[in-house]
Amino acid sequence: MTLLITVYAAVVATVVWYRRKDDNMQLGILCFMYWGASLMWLVDAIFEYSELHAEYFTPALADMVNDAFLGLSVVALGLIIWLVRLLITDPKGKVRATLQK
């Protein structure tokens, strides 16, 4: 579930990056972050599948809900990291302009 949610986040971030009208939003960072995590969880899933086999696809409801919450939290953390980086690097100078008022 975590892997699925992160893959969806990576795909959405990549589509938004492709359709961007403004290069200053640093959306590439968000894409790399989600794709990196997706690839790492994919390896984790392969190893887990090699241990559990078919059981891997029939998780308990409680585990699924926990994984879904984790996935959503991971997406939120990724967005927060991206936003904080965007505000600190301030490519458009908007934060600086606001602070100098």
Binding site: I29, F32, W35, G36, L39
Partner: peptide
């Protein structure tokens, strides 16, 4: 830089999973 972002991004989000 692309490789670095892939690795750091993945490591940070996975570290969060381990904290979880």
């Amino acid at each position: 830089k692309w490789l670095k972002y892939l690795l750091i991004g993945g490591a940070v989000l996975l570290a969060f999973e381990h904290v979880w």
